[in-house]
Design a protein around this nucleic acid. Structure first.
Length: 369
DNA sequence: CACCCGTGGAG
DNA sequence: TCTCCAAGGGT
């Protein structure tokens, strides 16, 4: 177990000094040295930022604050509305847990977030990283924050050559050693900014790094090779056929609510044949159609990449009269207006252009592929 | 620990 | 086109 060769307080001082000169202004952040943002804002931003980039989060953060200015507002909102507002951001369990957490804080903590790392850790959707980040940023607690950025900075600073995820034990220890008692929140954000803008995964800009003189990996010329990681598994391909069923009078499409857990849990979906590892023929897929009608195979297709598999999507087009539509399970929405996960929007994107508009003016017309 | 869980941007 | 991966959490 390599020992830190540098003086931890010196590391923090260098990083904080760099942060004072280079910090970025973000909607959920207070400038260095000023009072921290409300815990609600810190929590909301940290959950949204889990495995998600800053540019992707910005508009969602603003939208949520407008819709639900306080944790009570969010707690009192129907979970369906929260899922809808989250649509497109990904990792939908976060939205479910966000709502659960808001209810817990609102109803069990009087609307006040716990101010300790341990207390925060007990809330839904708040894991080790987020608990430490909120404690440090919102409550000025010297919690050791460790995210992907900080892992990279520390792995390089101390030349940790053990591959992830095993290296985490050591990295946690190093994070604790380096975390200062003073301005721990600014320090955590500074380390993450450093990782995001200077100590980047590829092509780190070591010449601009405030820690260059202390960086063991830079000294050995191996900065870019760290942290080491275990090889990833190949991504399998799965196949489905989307059933684009339109209501004849207004062009609305049939959508269904997915089960609450698992992939895209709780989100709306376009009905589709089971996602399997072999391609479908139109005949086989029809066994899974949501209604008996004339189905037309469309020529277009689409693909969507998930974390652990790729989905290839064909589509069939069907049409039912309003009276028949009312009998089917699910809900009818205009294709452009539905708040859907991206993969479902791609399915709707397979609708022939003429079919997306209201079909009122061309009733009886036949779909073409 | 291993696996599951989205998305879009960068190189 | 393809690979990597971003302020991780739940199970």
């Amino acid at each position: 177990m390599p020992k830190a060769r540098t003086n931890p307080p010196e590391i923090a001082a260098l990083v904080l000094d760099w942060y004072d000169r280079h910090h970025r202004t973000l909607p959920w952040r207070s400038p260095p040295g000023t009072p921290p943002p409300a815990p609600y804002r810190v929590w909301l931003s940290e959950v949204m930022l889990q495995q998600t980039t800053v540019p992707a989060v910005k508009p969602y953060f603003e939208k949520f604050l407008t819709l639900w200015p306080s944790v009570h507002d969010l707690a009192n909102a129907p979970v369906e509305h929260v899922m809808e507002a989250w649509a497109g951001l990904g990792y939908y369990a976060r939205a479910r847990n966000l709502h659960k957490c808001a209810k817990a804080v609102s109803e069990q903590h009087g609307g006040i977030f716990p101010d300790s790392e341990a207390g925060l850790l007990e809330l839904p959707g708040i894991g080790p990283y987020t608990a430490a980040a909120i404690a440090a940023i919102a409550f000025d607690e010297p919690a050791a924050v460790l995210d992907g950025n900080i892992e990279r900075v520390l792995a390089r600073l101390f030349a940790v050559e053990t591959p992830l995820p095993q290296a985490r034990v050591e990295l946690r220890k190093l994070a604790a050693q380096v975390t200062p008692q003073h301005r721990p929140g600014d320090f955590a954000q500074a380390m993450m900014d450093l990782g995001a803008t200077v100590c980047t995964p590829k092509g780190p800009d070591c010449l601009l790094c405030p820690l260059q003189a202390r960086c063991a990996a830079f000294k050995r010329g191996i900065a870019e090779t760290l942290p080491r990681k275990a090889a990833k598994a190949a991504r399998p391909v799965r196949h489905t056929i989307a059933f684009l069923l339109q209501r004849a009078d207004d062009g609305a499409v049939l959508l269904r609510r997915r089960p609450p857990e698992g992939l895209l849990g709780g989100m709306l979906e376009v009905p589709s044949a089971p996602w399997r590892d072999t391609p479908w023929t139109s005949g086989d897929a029809l066994d899974h159609a949501p209604a008996q009608t004339d189905w037309l195979m469309l020529n277009g297709d689409a693909a969507h990449v998930f974390t652990h598999f790729e989905l290839r999507i064909g589509a069939m087009l069907g049409r039912v009269a309003a009276r028949e539509a009312a009998k089917l399970d699910g809900q009818w929405q205009q294709p452009q207006e539905a708040a859907l996960p991206t993969v479902m929007k791609k399915m709707l994107g397979l609708l022939p252009t003429a079919e997306i508009r209201s079909t009122k003016s061309r009733r009886g017309g036949r779909a073409r592929s």
